[in-house]
Amino acid sequence: MTGVSKWYGDFQVLRDISLTVEVGEKLVICGPSGSGKSTVVRLLAGLEAHQEGDIHLQGGTMDAQRPGDIGMVFQSFNLFPHLSVLDNLTLGPVKALGLSRAEAEERACAYLDRVRIPEQADKRPAQLSGGQQQRVAIARALCMEPKLMLFDEPTSALDPEMIAEVLEVMEDLAADGMTMICVTHEMGFARRVADRIAFMDAGEIVEIGAPEQAFKAPKSERFALFLDKILKH
């Protein structure tokens, strides 16, 4: 991602963002609301267009990606409510990748296992808890066997007791070597998992570096203030 800028009308949400993420790297993006952190992830997922700059994935442009190469997990899960959990997982592999029903189901069951809810395959999303729904959403993205996983505040819509189960699944994923970009305020997760943490404010990456250093001695005053606010409670 080099020199990326984006405007909503007259309002500039991203200012000249340049960012490189290595294969296997885990990057956490944090920052106050309106800082543009979600927009960065949504651009990478191809959900929004930018006006200036270039985005490449492993040398190819965004348009050249195989469908599902970039997995995305949303704050509000966005599971398909009219389909069973299993059908949520097999829809992409069957309709976009052309897998047979049997192959897709086998793959779906394997990933449901990995997110630790193999027994919920036949239920509807509405019958699951928030934490379970988000884990299904993660499995749904994994079923496309993506090269990069994006997370847009995956735990912000969850009750506190369900945050841990989702973070554990994400940590497993990180341990398996998945390349991940995660927008989150879970600083414990960032400390345990992230290779680098980026702090965004007003459409800019203000600071980026290893989490240990960043937490101990933030270079910018804005990051220090932000950390102070979210770590206090």
Partner: peptide, 9 residues
């Protein structure tokens, strides 16, 4: 959006 991210046209 979710449909798009799992590769559906």
């Amino acid at each position: 959006e979710a449909a798009q991210t799992i590769g559906l046209s």
